[in-house]
Design a binder for these strands. Structure first.
Length: 583
DNA sequence: ATAGGGTTAG
């Protein structure tokens, strides 16, 4: 009796020893000992040992040990599969899976989960589909977690529809499943549906949204500029007691900033007990995008004082602050500082800000030289930024050169040609305009329609150019006519020569009067009380005519207007815009 | 004495 107890104790010691060892030489010693005491013949013990080997970084040794096992159990396969699925040779996991199937061993749902994850990692849709088929045949379709993994696979590189299909077929949907669905929608740009899903979750009452849901929905609100909905989510966050979660607060800062609501962003920021680099960067970017470049720089200095170390994205925010406010010297100084003082090499986004900064300041050649001489490969976006600057300054020879670069990257988009068209028309080069128009027509190049959204009472209304789909279209168009008349009295003159948005529109003047942002603004004026701030989000750049229109509208109708376009915020008040001049 | 799954901030 006494003897067996001490043996039991010895074995206990071995168990804890094996469990706590991840160091390879140690494990080798232990293995020798285990072999001597015949403990490795015990399948449970050898499984334990295998899992210890797997948690040491060297999987090759685990593999070697595994290959010496005569008839590995499915648990032993599972352990190794799991290890490979998170290693940098995830294919091995799939091979092991096939091997065990060939031996007639049946993987359990958890191993399936790991196998799917591995296939996602080595990006084989084929393998994933194969495994999915197997999962169906093995009858694991009631496993919510496993199906969630499958959804994640479909949403990550197959199709959104398939992910939805898996979701619909789930008998039990828990919050994580909803979250995966939401994150799938978010990735696919179905932002408005995300808001709907949030409401569904709450109303159906089956699944309470959790902190991750809130995080995702907040991002959706930020993308849409849906302030009211965002505030609703914020209230929900507080109700549920997530108010102190830093990741949520950081996301809220970004959401409020991107809705043009800086004071609220700042309130959230102030409320964070321990601000990390993400909190600071979110605030800095928020200040930057809303046109408070100097304050963004002050915030950066403040951040340094508190000892938080800036990272890549902090500098992206800072440099964009400089570009939005025309702080050329400061921007160039930060570009130097980031690598010299903080060892952060500028990436394409950093250079992008610098190109924007120099370009807007009219230093086009210098901007071009930055792109040519930078160490990273220029992407389409950075060329497009320079093209935007060419439009501002009516520089068409450089504009043509930039288009060449875009073509070389095979990244030229309809919008780029539209920019070039605008450059030509602003410089009065009408021959080139018609030439390019013909080219686009022949090639069948379609432009992205301008799309603006405005949120009222938590509902996001979207408008496209010449939109006729809105139920209140007649009232909206009447209102727009009325506004046009009022603004003309105040001195507004429609600018019909320098901007072309829509290639399909034959009548330029006509096309201008129905730009989506005007429709959204007219709708806002129509359905809100006098004095209500209107917030419009636009997918493309706002054109100069709509910008003028908004300026006059803010004065004549005494409204504060906040228009967010592809590049920045424009705050209009009393007939003026926060950006001194239009850009 | 027996490994162990899914979503997530700027």
């Amino acid at each position: 009796m006494l003897k067996s107890t001490s043996r039991h104790q010895q074995q206990q010691t071995m168990v804890s020893l094996v469990k706590s060892s991840t160091h390879k030489p140690h494990l080798l010693q232990i293995q020798a000992h285990l072999t001597r005491s015949c403990l490795l013949q015990n399948p449970k013990f050898s499984l334990l040992f295998l899992s210890s080997l797997c948690s040491s970084r060297d999987l090759r040794y685990a593999r070697l040990f595994f290959s010496q096992i005569k008839n590995p159990s499915s648990s032993q396969y599972n352990t190794l599969i799991r290890a490979y699925s998170s290693s940098n040779s995830p294919k091995e996991a799939f091979f092991l899976y096939r091997e065990m199937r060939q031996k007639g061993l049946k993987p359990d749902p958890i191993s399936f989960s790991f196998v799917i994850k591995s296939c996602v990692k080595f990006r084989s849709v084929f393998c994933c589909l194969q495994v999915h088929g197997r999962i169906i045949r093995d009858g694991f379709l009631s496993d919510c977690l496993l199906l969630t993994t499958l959804m994640e696979f479909y949403s990550s590189f197959a199709s959104r529809e398939d992910a939805c299909k898996v979701f619909d077929e789930m008998s039990q949907k828990d919050t994580v499943a909803w979250n995966v669905l939401i994150s799938c929608y978010l990735r696919n740009g179905r932002t408005r549906d995300v808001l709907m899903l949030f409401d569904n979750m709450k109303n159906e009452g089956v699944c309470e949204p959790d902190d991750v849901t809130c995080l995702l929905v907040t991002q959706a609100c930020a993308n849409l500029g849906a302030l009211e909905f965002g505030e609703k989510v914020h209230r929900y966050i507080k109700e549920r007691g997530y108010g102190t979660a830093r990741n949520l607060s950081n996301s809220l800062i970004s959401m409020y900033s991107r809705c043009g609501c800086l004071d609220k962003a700042y309130d959230v920021f102030k409320g964070i007990g321990e601000k990390n680099v993400i909190s600071w960067s979110a605030m800095i970017s928020g200040l930057a995008m809303n046109g408070f470049g100097r304050d963004a720089i002050l915030a950066f200095e403040e951040m340094r004082k508190t000892g938080v170390i800036p990272d890549e994205q902090t500098f992206t925010g800072l440099l964009s602050a400089c570009s939005h406010c025309g702080l050329v010297d400061e921007g160039m100084e930060f570009l130097n500082q980031m690598s010299k003082e903080f060892g952060i090499m500028p990436n394409v986004h950093h250079y992008g800000c610098v190109v924007d900064l120099l370009g807007r300041a009219g230093l086009l050649e210098q901007a071009y030289r930055v792109i040519i001489s930078m160490k990273v490969k220029p992407d389409a976006t950075i060329w497009r930024t320079l093209l935007g600057a060419c439009r501002i300054h009516g520089h068409f020879t450089l504009g043509e050169r930039v288009i060449e670069h875009l073509i070389e990257l095979k990244a030229q988009e309809a919008g780029d040609y539209v920019l070039l068209l605008n450059i030509y028309s602003s410089t009065g080069s009408w021959e080139k305009v018609s030439e390019l128009r013909k080219f686009l027509k022949d090639k069948g190049i379609q432009t992205t329609p301008g799309c603006s959204s405005i949120e009222l009472k938590g509902i996001v209304h979207e408008f496209i150019v010449d939109d006729v789909s809105h139920p209140q279209k007649h009232e909206i168009y009447n209102k727009l006519d009325e506004i046009n008349k009022q603004l003309k009295i105040a001195g507004y003159v429609a600018e019909t020569t320098s901007e072309l948005h829509d290639l399909g529109a034959e009548e330029k003047a006509n096309a201008l009067s129905y730009h989506s942002e005007k429709l959204a603004l007219a709708f806002g004026v129509l359905v809100t009380r006098p004095g209500t701030t209107l917030r419009v989000t636009k997918n493309l750049r706002i054109c100069i005519d709509c910008h003028n229109f908004a300026k006059f509208l803010s004065g004549v109708y005494n409204r504060q207007l906040i228009i967010r376009d592809r590049t920045r915020f424009h705050h209009f008040r009393d007939g003026h815009c926060s950006c001194n001049d239009y850009w």
